[in-house]
Each structure stands twice: as structure tokens, then as C-alpha cells.
């Protein structure tokens, strides 16, 4: 079970992907957020001991409910597969459900009183939803922890390694942790980003998608 005070990776990614000031999603590559959320759900199930992974396949270890409706729904999808599939395949499947994952994670952050929902209209017609922060404690705490990890030489806690790997994969780390002090630690960040297999697979999927889109572009120089 996840302690009630602890955010899931799905919630942490949803929270860290929001701009503090505007409450809008930070810039990410095409489908980057979708794959990051899908990866975050797999990482949650991994750290809860429900699944295991290796470069060849994702294996369901237990279908016991986690107590989290979002993760239990994802676990049901994984458990229904007739045979083990690689992590990359599951990311593709779950990324297609990312709108549901995103909405569920945002709802949870609103329930936790970390965010509030704000509905605006653009040109009095188009609906725009924003999530201004009510309680910034969680976001500051996790950023401070990850900052110390990147700038220091300590071994990462496995959960921090996973979160950083996911943030690097969807290129949010470059937006959140920027400046000369981080540039000087690029090698360290690269090493830390490799430490989680799901994070590596998210990164690979986003890179492949970017290359495919570039190849399909009608613009040629």
C-alpha cells in the first residue's frame, strides 16, 4: 500500500509538469507527457512489488489491489495480457490512456488540496483548464531533494532514481533543473537517468517518436 501522505509517481509527474506561475503544462516533446504518465504508472506498480521488468519483458508478480484506483486499473490491464510483453509495448498501450491518467492524477492533486482547478475561456469560446498551486510544499520538497541528488555525489534512493529518470525521459528535467550549475553536472544527470529501466524505455519511445515525426515532416531543407 502507498502511505497516504506519499504521492504516487503518476501524481508527482503530473504535479512537476505544471508551471508554478501559470498552472499550465510545461513544454515537452510530442506525447512526452503521455509516455511519462504511462511510465510513472508502471514505476508505481514496480515499487509496490506488483510487477518486475527486465530488458525483454514486464512480468506481473501479484494482482493484489494496491488501494489506489488508478494503479489498480492499470494493473488489471497488465494482468489481462495472455503473455509477457516488453515494457516498451506497454508504454504504447498505456500512453493511449494518458488523458484518463492525467485527469485522474489532476483530480487526486485537487483532492489533496495541492492544486485547485480553474476553468477559463479563451476568446469567450474555448475552454482552458489550469491548475494553480494551492500548496507548493510537495513540489518544493521533491525539487530540493532531486537538486541535492544531481549536484551531490550521494547514492540515490531507488524512488528518487526512478523519478529523476522519468523527468529526464520526457525532458522535464531540462526545464526544471537548468542553469550553469546543472550544466556542469550533465554526466551525473545522464548516469542517474539510466538507472531505471522504465525511464530508459520512456526515453527511447519519445526519441523514436520524435525521429518518426521528423522523418514524416514534409519540410525538407
Amino acid at each position: 500500500m502507498i502511505p497516504s501522505h506519499q504521492l504516487t509517481f503518476v501524481e508527482e509527474i503530473a504535479l512537476l509538469a505544471l508551471d508554478d506561475a501559470s498552472g499550465k503544462r510545461l513544454p515537452m516533446p510530442t506525447l512526452g507527457f503521455s509516455y511519462a504518465l504511462a511510465g510513472a504508472a508502471l514505476c508505481d506498480l514496480f515499487h509496490l512489488g506488483r510487477i518486475d521488468t527486465d530488458p525483454a519483458a514486464l512480468t506481473v508478480l501479484s494482482t493484489a489491489p494496491t488501494g489506489d484506483p488508478i494503479l489498480d486499473e492499470v494493473l488489471k490491464v497488465l494482468a489481462a495480457a495472455p503473455a509477457p510483453e516488453p515494457v516498451g509495448s506497454w508504454l504504447g498501450v498505456l500512453a493511449q490512456r494518458s488523458a484518463w491518467l492525467e485527469a485522474a492524477a489532476d483530480d487526486r492533486l485537487v483532492e489533496r488540496a495541492i492544486l485547485r482547478r480553474q476553468e477559463n475561456k479563451v476568446l469567450w469560446v474555448f475552454g482552458v483548464r489550469r491548475y494553480p498551486t494551492v500548496d507548493n510544499h510537495e513540489r518544493i520538497e521533491v525539487r530540493t531533494r532531486l537538486r541535492a541528488l544531481i549536484l551531490g555525489d550521494d547514492l540515490p534512493d531507488p524512488r528518487d532514481a526512478t523519478l529523476l529518470s522519468l523527468l529526464c525521459a520526457c525532458q522535464l528535467a531540462a526545464v526544471i533543473f537548468r542553469g550553469p550549475e546543472y550544466n556542469a553536472r550533465a554526466d551525473r544527470l545522464t548516469a542517474l537517468a539510466k538507472m531505471d529501466l522504465v525511464g530508459r524505455e520512456v526515453s527511447r519511445a519519445i526519441d523514436a517518436l520524435g525521429k518518426a515525426l521528423l522523418g514524416a515532416s514534409p519540410l525538407r531543407l
Partner: peptide, 18 residues
């Protein structure tokens, strides 16, 4: 053989010791 779960225990154990 070591899976991701095994790596997590290796890393977690090394971290706790440190």
C-alpha cells in the same frame, strides 16, 4: 540473472549502508 527488482534491492541496500 538480475531483474529491475534485484537492482532496486542492490541500490537500496547500498544506500542504506552508506
Amino acid at each position: 540473472y538480475v531483474s529491475s527488482a534485484g537492482l532496486r534491492v542492490f541500490l537500496g541496500g547500498a544506500k542504506k549502508l552508506k
